[in-house]
Design a protein around this nucleic acid. Structure first.
Lengths: 246, 246
DNA sequence: GTCTATACAGAGATAGAC
DNA sequence: GTCTATCTCTGTATAGAC
């Protein structure tokens, strides 16, 4: 049985240590509490990884328990069940994303922040540490819809992105032709772009190159005009309009 | 157990038919064969819908059997199992896509064909009739990877798209800065863009409007230059380059 | 070929000893 | 609080009557 953190959590050993020592009960409680939180962290960490790698439906609590080095029953002391556990993972993912946005250097302008956001989420996904939910048809979505903390965190992230979109549009870095709602959904969707998997699978590009191509597709879209329609049957836009962009 | 020769070995039915009917065995076999195919079609149709609505993992064979109006055991007379059934659904989806591409009017230029392809797949998805696999982490991907018919059909579709991409690039409708591989993956990924679900969910746009916005994001990207990078720390591209596109 | 009934496996969740 | 062992439910797949 793998214990990835390497810490000894055996309750009996812990008991012995507490008995032979004369530490005050305050310290005792604090110690146990610390261990408790540490185990919870280990669970959340491994669950984040498995969720990112396998997806909600394919991930099992047996896998989480084994990866975290504890019995499955322990999971239920910390969380009500699979849904509850994964909801908390997703909420923490959103909080990490918020933290990343908060830490962006002040000199960055809005469009740079948006690009940094997309790149960071894409990279995290390739590192099996996805902070955002990529699955559209997973059973967990029902639970997330009902989760107030999740909806609040998601709302915060959306608001932040929308502010920057407006700023970037005013600065002329995002084309004003994109509705705010469409631009926001595009950013959040491209941040978990399934194209990363497809491109990685071709083995034509490195990890970082794949991320950059995905970032480019996203930013190029927002910068371009949505009104380009090569298919309106007669219009054939001149080449020079395109070359003027580069 | 599949009966590859199509001959009926069942002792009961064969006996009855041979006794009470005087029709030549040829007609008899043809009629039964027709019914057999009809039921198989019904299974495939309902499975396509459920697969599109719920995804591979969430879809159950009980649902397929009930939707098709037959006992679950019948499914196993037509298909080896869930994987086999869904693989055939996906292959037929690819064939339908090929059929759509074959039917495009001759006057359409390459970029118009590409746009028509993306729009058609997106619409089919919203009609619960997805011809392409959107799920990236489903268990079915292993089976598809091993399925020769699927890989062949997918290869055919890819080749066709790549030809048109090259033509569109030569015509100046797709920016030459996009590598062929990236452009192809972008098209196939955008054709099943998860953004459709996200946008539909906001209830801000109608069915058709959502599809059009997704089509626009895809085509605008291919038309634009990938080398626009607002985030290269010092460069601040002029507004006029963007406005020149519209 | 189609049905009912059932075997079998996997995974979520719980019981009870320590 | 943690463990082992078990329950329960669901879903795939199969057996056997007709």
């Amino acid at each position: 049985m793998a214990n990835r953190s390497g810490v000894n959590f055996d309750p009996y050993v812990t008991n012995i240590n507490l008995t032979v020592s004369n530490r005050p009960s305050f310290s005792h409680v604090s110690f146990r509490d610390m261990m408790h939180r540490a185990r919870k962290e280990a669970i959340l960490e491994e669950c984040t990884r498995l969720l990112s790698e396998r997806g909600y439906d394919a991930m099992t609590l047996d896998q989480v328990a084994e990866a975290a080095g504890m019995a499955k029953a322990v999971l239920y002391k910390h969380f009500k069940g699979k849904e509850d556990l994964c909801c908390e993972v997703m909420v923490r993912g959103l909080e990490r994303a918020q933290g990343f946005l908060d830490g962006l250097p002040a000199r960055m302008v809005a469009s740079q922040r948006l690009q940094a956001f997309v790149r960071w989420v894409l990279q995290a996904q390739l590192n099996s540490d996805a902070p955002l939910l990529a699955e559209r048809k997973s059973e967990i979505r029902h639970a997330l819809k009902a989760s107030e903390p999740y909806q609040l965190a998601l709302q915060g992230l959306s608001t932040r992105l929308e502010e920057w979109i407006v700023q970037a549009q005013e600065a002329g870095h995002i084309h004003p032709g994109w509705p705010l709602l469409v631009a926001r959904q595009m950013l959040m969707t491209r941040a978990v772009d399934p194209m990363v998997d497809a491109l990685m699978h071709t083995q034509a590009y490195s990890h970082d190159e794949v991320v950059e191509w995905c970032v480019k597709t996203c930013m190029a879209t927002l910068h371009a005009s949505p009104e380009y329609l090569p298919l309106s049957q007669k219009a054939k836009p001149a080449k020079k309009s395109m070359l003027a962009v580069g």
